[in-house]
Design a protein around this nucleic acid. Structure first.
Lengths: 338, 338
DNA sequence: CAGCCTATTCTAAACGTTTCGAAGGTGTCA
DNA sequence: TGACACCTTCGAAACGTTTAGAATAGGCTG
């Protein structure tokens, strides 16, 4: 910038004024400066600018698992919206690991991001302290954090699972296995609550051994399903609390020599683009990923531009039950013990 | 930092020395300073540091489509390795859009990233000019750029598709449809070349109307497959040049009332975690995503630490043909015209 | 023509670090 | 005791911007 100023024979203040349009500059100087910028090929240094302005036009985005297509879709739209608004996105993922999560958040804050969008891996005290301490515009997506009162966009998890469970119950299933996500997360807890509520509404006793923790990961879900299927009273249906886990569920069913839906009905949280072309066509709960991403981005943008009301805004979206072919009436499930 | 210096009654230079361990400091002052840091809760400002040092410890990562599980997997490991090395990752994706790609790269460079890892959407002149002009450590992944001579890690695409085609040929297929990716990308071109080479080796005439462009996207692949399947001489097998497109291929097969593999054999580039549990079990070419990510990250890390040789390093990995059940001998394909 | 107002331009401080070279203190040796 | 070296600490400049306020020039008014 100093070079430009010299070349155009003006002060840096004037150069800054034409670049930012922050002050009136005579046409003559303006064109001289613009030419000098062209000739020199000058690019304003964003770091220096950030230092002075105290803003980086960058938002930190942390999700638990970028390998999960649900998060991927959401990240893609957030990234898109934010870019259009001139913001860069700094991405972190932590493999559902709480320790790494703390590090990553620190790293983002250290880089002076202007805001944070987070899908937390777990309800960690350290994390909450860090977030509170950072005092940055923050929006939580997918998962809430007890005691952290910020903007957020989440799904009505309880209701979605409640409805799905009701659907399976309606098919006559009485022993429905439930592969749960980590109960450290609000989604893990809410989804399980939906399942239990539906059982209760149907006046079925809650049986602890029908619920197994799969931690939202394929491997753990595989093991959990194995246990479920080799137990004395095998369930006639299984619900998986997310997309990654349902792969593990299906693998376990296959490895144990059973078939879905003939022997076991299966339904899952999160939809797949290929769900109605590969068999069995999975019955799922589809999340409005586009809307989640857009609204999260908008929430942080509003907050950053000071347009938001002081009170945190909490958006709750509804899932959609996609009934396909992986669940059958229990009467058509010959080997079922239900 | 000034506050810390005052509190400990020393100069900022000394504070900086203990924080960075860049100069010897007496035990007494050191402990006094460390205490002051604790008390004040001081965090060094990375922006100011970057300004002085001319380095941000951030690398820009741009992939064509973060919704594509292949890229997702690679991004996840790159992110992981880089984080361990103390680098942050700034992520961009451009939906295979060349214009947006230019913008995004500019945005990354504008943020003063220390290096760039790119899977370019297309062989765009502007992009190449920008990259060359930025004069940053750069590593290309998955796709090369004509005339840009940097570190890179890619797959031996030609050979992988060549082998897969040979496999289908071995099953007796003579009319193999090919849904190609964008020929603006090196992968698009190389994969197609592998297909053609295999046909040639089998002394089969090359027929232009067996090759359709699907641009690596599901929708385009769907249309392309529709054309292929409604043509007068329907192919008995179809190869899809990536994972997203094979969904489109399968949807078209379904919508036209055919079955895979009974009526049409299908194989595809890129593997899926669910490929051997949902039907038909797809025959695919698996890429070593872990290795690609690790090596790309290592390449940029070496370059950033000046450990690399001056000459660019080009790593070529091999794909693996995962033979499953979506391809059958042509003799078992009753309705085939082949 | 002095005085004043406006429009434009400039000077200089500030953002929070790092680091070079200087300064001060202590110890050793002739 | 003076010269010298070494070790620790410090002052101040520099990185590249933005911006408040001062300065300058020109035009207008009384």
């Amino acid at each position: 910038m100093l070079d430009v100023a010299k070349a155009a024979n003006v002060s840096v203040a004037t150069v800054s004024a034409v670049i930012n349009g922050s002050a009136p500059v005579s046409p003559e100087l303006r064109s001289r400066i613009e030419e000098a910028i062209q000739v020199i090929g000058y690019k304003r240094n964003a770091i220096a600018r950030s230092l002075k302005l105290g803003t980086t036009r960058t938002v930190g985005l942390m999700v638990a698992d970028i390998t999960n297509p649900f998060f991927t879709d959401v990240v893609a739209v957030i990234q898109d919206v934010l870019h259009r608004a001139g913001y860069a996105v700094m991405l972190c993922c932590n493999d559902e690991d709480v320790e790494m999560q703390d590090e990553q958040i620190e790293l983002l804050i250290d880089r002076s991001v202007d805001g944070l969008i987070i899908a937390p891996a777990g309800d960690d005290e350290t994390l909450k302290r860090i977030i509170a301490g950072a005092n940055l515009p923050t929006v939580l997506i997918d998962r809430l954090l007890d005691g952290i009162d910020t903007d957020a966009v989440v799904l009505d998890n309880r209701r979605a699972v409640h409805d799905a469970t009701l659907y399976m119950l309606g098919l006559g299933h009485r022993r429905i296995g439930y592969i749960s996500g980590s109960l450290e997360t609000s989604t893990g807890r809410e989804r399980l609550a939906g399942y239990k509520a539906a059982l209760e509404a149907a006046k079925l006793p809650h049986e602890d051994d029908l619920v197994r923790i799969g931690n939202f990961r394929e491997k753990d879900a595989y093991k959990a399903t194995m246990q479920l299927l080799t137990s004395t009273e095998r369930p006639s249906a299984i619900f998986s609390a997310n997309n990654l886990m349902v792969i593990g569920v299906m693998k376990a069913i296959r490895d144990i020599g059973l078939k879905c839906p003939e022997d076991v009905s299966v339904a899952s949280f999160d939809d797949f683009p290929w769900a109605d072309v590969f068999q069995p066509h999975l019955t799922t709960i589809a999340q409005p990923v586009q809307a989640i991403g857009e609204q999260a981005a908008q929430l942080i943008l509003d907050r950053l531009s000071g347009k938001s009301p002081a009170a945190p805004r909490r958006l709750v979206l509804q899932g959609r039950l996609m009934i396909r072919e992986s669940c059958r009436p229990v009467s058509l499930t010959p080997r079922a013990i239900a």
